[in-house]
Amino acid sequence: MGDTVVKIENLVKKYKELTAVDHLSLEIKKGEIFGLLGPNGSGKTTTISCLLSLLAYNEGNIELFGKPMTPVSYDSKAKIGVILQNVAVFDELNVYENIDCFCGLYIKDKAKRRQYVDEAIEFVGLKDFTKFKPKKLSGGLLRRLNIACGIAHKPELIILDEPTVAVDPQSRNKILEGIEELNRNGATVIYTTHYMEEVEQICTRIAIMDHGKKIAEGTSGELKRMIKNTETVTIEMDEPDSGLLETMKNLENAYEVRWEAGKLKIFFAGGEHNLLNTMDTIRTTGTHFGQVTSELPTLNDVFLTITGKELRDKD
């Protein structure tokens, strides 16, 4: 158990009648980028707040670095870096001062702190903006500053709560690359989001949450293997007759055929060359068709399959 950084057992958090976190158990190993994926209101942020001992919880145990986590676990807190969902920087301080201000909550030594702040500025790419006040920064740069404030003290465990909300694609990629680099440098990362693409891109392990419960956990591949679908072929065409639908259903590995919104969708469970087989078959029937695409299953499909609904607030 020496490499377990976070251990949550049967965590229950209730707000009066609402159960925000429902008997959640997680174990996060050192060096992982652990993704907490779920729609808004699924209990991700509440879990993080309980983990940080900010929120009182009704049941369960939380351990960080092998020790129970309490509000006065200052040793553990010193090893944690937190980047919260909302940007929390001071408008009156410039970029350098903001990072130094928050870094000073962790690092006493001035010279060491100066070095750490410089490295954090370099890391998030704000070197040209050190004298800028936050109001002068774009949304993306502001997010980067927010991250720098959370990671400047070189924490062993970094918790990022939806750090890419309302961020442009360029800054989002920069942030994701940065998280991977932090991980490569030895940090364990907990990353909460409702963007499944981000989780798929960077997380080594993922827990999917809904209504406070963990509904699935594993690597991206493991999660996708939990569902029947392995490939979906979509063909733009006029409404097919019943004969064509029957022909498609009989394709090898196909288990469902659906025509909706001007597109024929054929769902496959396993097998190889499903797209080629589909194209051959449709050509032999002489059917006119437009664009043809093949999609592998996503975590949304996993979520859809398990819960019967899509991840909400998709961007």
Partner: peptide, 17 residues
């Protein structure tokens, strides 16, 4: 105070009492 502001939350997460 963590329940009053994001600054409070950030400070409450730190090892500073």
């Amino acid at each position: 105070e963590a329940n009053l502001s994001d600054y409070g939350a950030r400070r409450s997460c730190s090892p500073t009492p």
